[in-house]
Write a protein that binds this DNA or RNA. Structure first.
Lengths: 314, 314
DNA sequence: CTTGACTCTCCCCTAAGGGGAGACGGTAGC
DNA sequence: GCTACCGTCTCCCCTTAGGGGAGAGTCAAG
């Protein structure tokens, strides 16, 4: 505590300077000689920005930015050179800013805190924010893990959880002997829809709705649906119905022949399990490209949509 | 699957168009009539950007951005109007982009993945990234909790963990009867340093180093240190030494009389405990503003620095 | 032909600074 | 007093993943 001797150095310029006399006092202090220090002209209690930055492990740019934002004004700014001079006691203020930034507050919020507009509720709100971010991040991690577990297989056909909007459809229930017979009834349905004056919705959305959960080898009860712009009169073959919105559905695109559907099912079901979801609705298979517009089976495209919800979150 | 009938629609334009014949084919398909749909001029397999965006729960801006970045080029762009047209099969590509984004990849990385520059190591690196972010976030949470626990007390004098750089000091060991006698030996030390030709380091750093851990009421062995530019010859009173860098030190600023030091100690020690640190070095008290330059005790400023390390991380 | 809904490009904006250019300021050595 | 060198100033552009809007052109329906 050698500076102990310097009792008679003029003091009291804690507030930011504004007039000439204050400036003079500050400059006097800057050039005051230490009792024994051999660098008499080095400012002793006022530091230029580079030194102040170095003392506090921050960059010059950062200090200038805080000055601009009004978070930490230098104790004194030379009018002609524009040089910023900082006091040692401002370390504490900077310290506070850095600590608040560490907790996740942004500069705007920190400024409000400085102005005293800070209460418990804001701290709690920030805590909620962090918790939310934390859960989002753990979700990401789980998905990444599932990618890592499944090799690159599911990188080209990834699972995405999205919502399915409400949709009005023309539907036709059938029981097909096997999955192969799935498309047999379709021509009839097309004719019937044309007869009833149906207009297809845009974008087109044509899918098979599996009416029973689980996998059965035969006697599969399904519903063939096509989105339409409005309900028409029900006929013997066709009923109109509205599917309510599905908040979350795990979806995967399947490219290629329908014989390989099981692979895509494996991927999406694994995803559901590994990411803490459970199936909470009947599965839809949406047909996008197929024999009607693609010559090669390899170009066929479908989407499997499985309504899910997070376990425990009902 | 009503579009089943449309077997004879020209196909095979999966690649992005470039020449005139391809364009014509595409436009043909756009204006193709459905068998039964009543909006014959509505494009059937090509969608404009708004529709394509709506189908996929993304914004138009996003699609345009992906186009610019080369992540998802529209299947066809009208040369005169500049309109972007998307194919249904591109939903799968968009799907992949969104899924990768969900896992935390940025657009640049996604582009690399699309180009096949993707291997397991990158997935693992991304996982490490997420884990790091996760631990940073839990740290934030812990600090926030400690703020919440301590009311607003420590918001004005927050604890910050930072590094202390290597420093060369002149030191003088003494045993003081009580903390009150701490400053008694200082004038002597100042004179001696002057005699030895010491030059104070800039910025000034003058502190008491407590040589024994724990708190003792009397017979405190301390070391008074002042940073200097270079070593000089040791004298009977003064030795020169180099403090190595301290990687992590929990620091707190203390404003006001030294009688209240215990309060600041309480705050910082609580912080250390609550944030999973432990003390791993001797405590320093750095004196910044004091009786030598401030009239009012309220303006005195000191900093308590406690070397710490994360428990378990050595 | 008009209207309204869509789309285009172009420009500026975000948070917290980073990087650099060109011009001064301050100090040290000669 | 001159020069070299470092520190600092302001000003400008850049980062991500798009958002907002202006002004102009397009598309389909009445």
């Amino acid at each position: 505590m050698l500076s102990y001797f310097r009792k008679n150095i003029p003091v009291g310029i804690d507030d930011c300077v504004g007039n000439e006399s204050e400036k003079e006092v500050l400059m006097m202090r800057m050039y005051e000689e230490h009792e024994y220090c051999k660098k008499p002209k080095e400012p002793s209690r006022l530091y230029r920005i580079g030194m102040f930055a170095g003392m506090n492990h921050v960059t010059v740019k950062t200090l200038r930015h805080y000055d601009e934002q009004g978070l930490l004004k230098p104790a004194y700014v030379d009018e002609e050179s524009g040089y910023r001079y900082y006091q040692v006691s401002q370390i504490a203020d900077l310290h506070q800013i850095l600590a608040l930034k560490n907790v996740g507050f942004n500069l705007e919020e920190i400024k409000e805190i400085q102005m005293g507009k800070m209460d418990r509720t804001q701290l709690i709100r920030k805590k909620q924010e962090i918790l939310g971010e934390l859960s989002r991040l753990t979700d990401k991690l789980a998905q990444l893990e599932s990618y890592l577990a499944g090799e690159s297989l599911n990188l080209s056909a990834p699972v995405l959880v999205k919502s399915l909007p409400e949709v009005t459809v023309a539907s036709m229930q059938t029981v097909v002997k096997s999955y192969d017979a799935l498309f047999d009834a379709m021509p009839k349905m097309g004719e019937e829809m044309e007869r009833l004056g149906c207009v297809c919705a845009q974008p087109e959305y044509c899918f098979t709705h599996y009416l029973e959960p689980g996998y059965k080898e035969e006697q599969v009860r399904i519903e063939t649906c096509e989105a339409v712009t409005e309900r028409k009169e029900d006929s013997e073959l066709i009923q109109f119905k509205v599917f309510p919105e599905v908040k979350e559905a795990a979806c995967i695109f399947h490219k290629g022949s329908y014989n390989d559907f099981s692979k895509s099912y494996a991927v999406v079901l694994k995803y559901i399990e590994e990411n803490g979801y459970e199936i909470c609705g009947n599965i839809r298979e949406s047909y996008i490209d197929g024999v009607w517009n693609k010559e090669s089976e390899k170009e066929w495209l479908s989407e499997i949509q499985i309504p899910v919800c997070k376990i425990g979150r009902q």
